[in-house]
Design a protein around this nucleic acid. Structure first.
Lengths: 221, 221
DNA sequence: ATGTCAAATAATATCGATTTTTTCTGGAGA
DNA sequence: TCTCCAGAAAAAATCGATATTATTTGACAT
């Protein structure tokens, strides 16, 4: 009834597979915030043993997508407006640092990668492909990855994931206006290709603040 | 049916205990960077089963103290000058953000906590207590924790740990001059108590840069 | 009715053993 | 001598079952 959707064939290990699937379910809201995650239940859902499930949950714990409670098992991490705003704040800070470093290291190969990722993202956006999310993240990470700062990139990636979770929760995953966004992406790309760090970071941060406000307004507390 | 031997009272779970001990061994260099971490070996060392060891290693993976390699197990994370410099860079950036936010929220209770932590740290330093490391971290985290930004604090704590690892590796864990450091701590404390964000962050960052250079000089590549 | 405690239930945490996968070793062919 | 392959050994990943710990239930006393 379900699972052949995400499968790109390669499942190296049961643990890794469970990690990917659980992570996806949490990001999309299929496993809602705060929900108790019982081993048995997940074991059945993922059709695997208890050990891989348990290990996958441990990994998700450090991605801050799952909380471990004393001796009482696991639950999907809760959400709050406060948490959302912190994510936004940190993203603005860290991605600015990373983007400036990326531009400082700019070279032809990086520019090529950027153009390519942007193109793929546009293509996926037009035909409403289910992998738009992936392409979108790939573009954003490509902007940053020329910084050659792996820890920073890791944090940015983590925060990116925490953020898309709020997008799904607030809007069912697709309802934020794509025209606006496309133009914003274009501006960021152009500035990056011109090695204009000030302009690129300004556009990037505006991009985040704008969608941030949009989402913030959709939340209660 | 046995385990009341370990006199330290609070071992909530075998997994958590293994996590703490392994983490300590990696931070202090007892398990050197790059070392293969075999389950059997650790199982014997920690006197526990394979499951807790495995789960502890998973947790350490996301602290970036352990690397998981495909289907080939785990190893202690490698070190490099490059990695060290990135840690330094990120700490300066993130801790400045956190410290400014802390000072912005300053109140009497926070100031009390600061003074107390500082006092404990000085006391531990004088009598060369083995828990100086803990007191030192507690003081630094107390500077930041009034920011009320849990994600940021988590990152700062992680980076702090990654950094003390380099201290142990470079100097056997204790040889960096304590007089200097005491004065620097005092300056940071005073500035924070005066709610002087500029001065506090300047002193804090200088503090990091200085010990950073000291350690950097002790490294080869 | 209500609060408390003990037995029953459910879920977690852990262990021991099995199954895969990788790594090591040694010999046959070039 | 070197490379390539098969078989043996080692290690990791996974499973099934047990022990431990939390939660619920229901009877009893207030």
């Amino acid at each position: 009834m379900d699972a052949m959707l995400d499968t790109e064939g390669k499942e190296t290990s049961a643990t890794h597979g469970a990690y990917r699937r659980l992570r996806n379910m949490i990001l999309t809201g299929e496993l809602p915030p705060g929900q108790k995650l019982k081993i048995e239940q997940l074991r059945g859902l993922l059709d695997t043993g208890a050990s891989p499930v348990r290990e996958a949950l441990s990994l998700l714990t450090s991605d801050m997508l799952v909380e471990r409670i004393d001796q009482r098992g696991f639950r999907a991490a809760p959400v709050s407006k406060c948490n959302f705003e912190e994510i936004l704040l940190l993203r603005c800070n860290l991605e600015e640092t990373a983007l400036r470093a990326s531009i400082a290291n700019a070279d032809g190969a990086w520019e090529d990668r950027l153009v390519l990722r942007h193109h793929h993202m546009k293509k996926a956006s037009q035909k409403g492909a289910p992998d738009f999310e992936d392409a979108h993240k790939a573009f954003h990470m490509a902007l940053l990855d020329n910084s050659k700062l792996p820890l920073l990139l890791r944090y940015c990636s983590q925060l990116y994931d925490l953020n898309i979770r709020y997008r799904y929760l607030a809007a069912g995953g697709s309802s934020y206006k794509k025209r606006d966004i496309a133009a914003e992406h274009q501006q960021i790309l152009d500035a990056a290709l011109n090695h204009d760090a000030d302009s690129a970071t300004r556009h990037l941060i505006d991009h985040y603040r704008r969608t941030g406000e949009y989402l913030s307004n959709q939340m209660e507390p």
